[in-house]
Each structure stands twice: as structure tokens, then as C-alpha cells.
Design a protein around this nucleic acid. Sequence first.
DNA 1: CAGTATCCATTTCGATACTG
DNA 2: CAGTATCGAAATGGATACTG
Lengths: 226, 226
Amino acid sequence: MSSYGQFCPVAKAMEVLDERWTLLVIRELLLGSRHFNELRRGVPKMSPALLSKRLRSLERAGVVGRSDVGGRTVYTLTERGRELEPIVNALGLWGLRWIGDLGEEDLDPHLLMWDIRRTIPVEAWPRARTVVAFSFDDVPRKDAAWWVVVAGGEVDICDYDPGYDVAVEVRCSLEALTRIWRGELSWPGAVKAGRVELDGPAEARRAVPTWLGRSTLADALAAASG
Amino acid sequence: MSSYGQFCPVAKAMEVLDERWTLLVIRELLLGSRHFNELRRGVPKMSPALLSKRLRSLERAGVVGRSDVGGRTVYTLTERGRELEPIVNALGLWGLRWIGDLGEEDLDPHLLMWDIRRTIPVEAWPRARTVVAFSFDDVPRKDAAWWVVVAGGEVDICDYDPGYDVAVEVRCSLEALTRIWRGELSWPGAVKAGRVELDGPAEARRAVPTWLGRSTLADALAAASG
DNA sequence: CAGTATCCATTTCGATACTG
DNA sequence: CAGTATCGAAATGGATACTG
């Protein structure tokens, strides 16, 4: 965190925030992650040493607080940190609107499913246990199959067959589902274009969009600009 | 600009924006700088090689456009770049609110006077040529004396005595004026506390706050949160 | 679970000087 | 004016393995 040598508030802010990974760690904290390995799941490409280092910097900067709760370390945002939320959101909207080209290295089924899991509208699902199976046709076999299980108001994501009846199977490329998630493709559009195949009773197939939705940023962008 | 390997829009945005100096260059462009050496004035601690490199990155990212106008290179923000304005402002407000401790290395009379110059409300000044002299008691002699000359609707900043009659002389530390500019100290408060001395006719002394004001960010913060 | 430790290739950046 | 060229010190951070 070397200084810019400027009193300008933007410069002072960036002294704290411009290091690689920093804002992604803050994003994770804003989304509710509180433990080290929980944070890691959100930034899997970051080494643990580096994550540790960033958390310490942010603590020194008064953005992150660390405490021990029952022997577990808990990271939380201070008020100073929480006030970064509008900035992170604005960055997300800008990124969504303007930085659309995703390389293959940007696609990651673990991150996508984890992200979907975070915001699944449980109340839109049937009361009875309901399973949606995904299979991606463009990734290595071991990451290609996923199951979303909603039961008793809880969501589970598995990368192994949990053995329950499947209500709908979704077959597509990881890229297609990522684009849908980002709001760049609509569910019906993707189905019509043959980029997604849905297998199951018509009623369940129709429900998929409301069950899964899209990222909250995509919703916000759609709300803001059509 | 190495990738984060995430489809998350915040990550994609930061791939473009998180490198050191990048957002400060964008800030300068937002403030209206258009030529290479004009940009340099706003980021004097940045080497020209690095500035050149950043401008190229931003051009590749579609944030900055470069053109030749009468043999001069002109840098401008594209729409994509202009849409960063709310983000830069939000960062500035956050920095102003939360990152208040300035080291000595953050204080720079050239930057401060240049920044003041950018936003002087000429219409608040008398019609006749009016000069305010500054002398800083905590910086090397060669950077200690400044003159703001407003005449004919134009503002000039000199670091040498232009020779005109001086309406008010402002004597203070560079730190004090910087704090006033950032809105952390008010003009009357600073005078009462003896941190600023004003010399000149009472009427002119009273006018100084409206002639010089404070940074637009400080105004925005005051408006937003008292 | 929650981190440390170590290592080193790579990058980055600041300083300075120079050019058409 | 608008950059390039060059250089070396410093840091960054990715990979991997390890610990209480």
C-alpha cells in the first residue's frame, strides 16, 4: 500500500482499495462470508497466504474487524467497510454493462453454482423437496454435473447425485448458464436458440426461470436501463 | 492486467481498474484534462512511461479514446469511461469521510493550488483584478509563496509575485489550507483557532471563503451528511 | 478449521535520461 | 509538446507444503 503522495480523497481511497483482490474480498464480506475458508470459496484463485495478508491490511485500514467467537475467527466489515457497498455495486453494474467478454478462464462452475445458491428464492419453489439437475457439456466430467436441492426452506448444491427424483434437468454449456446468470441471455431466449435444453414436465420447465432467476446485479441493471 | 478468473462483474471491472494509478488518471480525465502533460500535472508522482502505459491499457479497454487534433494528441473518455464518474465520486466521498489522516508526503502545494484553480467561482470575485497571496510556513521556500490572480473572468496561479496589488494575504500551513480545502476545517474556524492569518481590508478578508471555497467533494459530503 | 512458511519467477515501478 | 528508452531495486504474488 504505497502512497500516491496526494491529498485527493480518491487517491487516499485507492491507497486502501487498489491492490489486487482487495475489492473482491470486500465483495465476499458484503455478501455475508465471515470465515476464512468461506471467503476462500468466493476467491478460490487467491492463495491463502495472500488472503490472510489482505485481511490484515484491511483490518489495519479499519475496513475489516476480526474477532473470536467460540474459538472461530470471524471477519466482519466495520461501518467504514459497509459503506463501500454502493461502490462495489456500482463497480458491478459497470462491469456488467461494459466488460462483457468472458474468457474461458472466467467460467467456473463452482463459483457459478455457489453464486446461484446464495440467492435462490426458496419461497418460489414447491413445498415438497425439489431437485434441479444441471449438466454442462463443455467442462471436464468431474465438474459437469450438479444438483440443486430445495427442501424444507433450505438449499443445497451437490456435485454428486443426491439420489432424489429430479424435477427438471438443465443441459447447456457452462458459458450459456453464466450468460443467463449475468442477464445477457434470457431463459426463454436461450431455450429457443437451442443453447439450453430443459427436460421434465412442462410445468416444472416453465418454473425454472423463477426458481433460479439471475444475479441481483443483472436485475439491478435491467431495472436501471431496461 | 492479469485476470481474476471469475465471471463476477466486480472482478471483471477490477481487471480494468485496479492497477495502481489507473483510477487517478481517469479522475483527471473526468476533471477535463486532455493532453499528456496536462494529465501529468494531476499525477506528478507518476512517471511518464507509466502514464503512457496506463493510457494505452485504458485505450485497449475502451475507456479512453485517443485522437490527433491539429498535431496534438488528445485523450478523452469514451462513454464507457464517462460512466465511471459516479464510481470515482463515490470513492472520493468515501475517502474523504474515512481516510482522513494525511501524511506529510500527501501534502503538495502545486496540486492544491491547481485543484483550487480548477473550481474557483470567478463570478463571486470583484470585476476588477483581484489578487490573493498565500504563504505557507511549513514548506521549502521555493514552494511557499503563491498568488491567485482573478481578472477578466480568468484565473491565474503564480508561484512568483506578479507584481499587482494584493487584496488579501493568507498565511497558514500547507496542512491547514489542505484541510480547509477538504472541508475538515472551516475558514472561520481555522481563523479563530489561529491556524490561518488573513491580512487585508475587513471586507476582503470576509470574502475569502466565498472566493476560494472548498473542493466539490467536500461540498457533496457536507450536503449528504451534514 | 484457520491459517503459516517458504521460495522464487515475474512483474512492477520509480528514477533518470533521452528523442523527434 | 509528447512521449520512449533503459535500468535496477523492490514487491508482488502464485504454487506448494506444512502446522496447531
